[in-house]
């Protein structure tokens, strides 16, 4: 009985200690890597500002995204791209603009597509 008691106390203490060390290690590891990343990001940001100044003229020709609906749509498009990349955190993408492509499909095709989409939503 004494041995089992000792095993319980020592065992639980060691399990906690080991996992606390791991939690600390994970936090420190994450922080250390973030510090490095921030430094790299700062460098990249300063370079980006420079190129923005150079490309101001070209940027004006792109469609401007101002209203709230478009921002939501951009968020959805970004999420869809990220999902198609299986949520990998190694790629950082930012959707800046989008252009609608006119839908020239025949009416029956559009109706078919809508039926399929609605059927999926209901399911």
């Amino acid at each position: 009985m004494d041995l089992a008691g000792t095993l319980t106390i020592v065992g639980m203490v060691v399990v906690f200690a080991a996992l606390i060390i791991l939690a600390l290690a994970i936090s420190l590891l994450g922080k250390a890597i973030n510090i490095n990343k921030n430094a790299i990001a700062e460098k990249a940001a300063s370079n980006a500002i420079k190129t923005d100044i150079v490309n101001t003229g070209a940027a004006n020709t792109q469609s401007q995204i101002s209203n709230q609906d478009d921002k939501e749509l951009i968020a959805v498009i970004t999420a869809a791209i990220m999902a198609s990349m299986k949520g990998s955190s190694d790629f950082k993408i930012r959707v800046k603009s989008f252009r609608r492509i006119p839908d020239n499909s025949p009416e029956w095709n559009i109706a078919g597509k809508l039926t399929t989409i609605n059927a999926n939503i209901i399911r």
Partner: peptide, 9 residues
């Protein structure tokens, strides 16, 4: 990382 404690408990 704090959830690690529950893995011990």
């Amino acid at each position: 990382p704090s959830m690690i404690f529950f893995g011990a408990a």
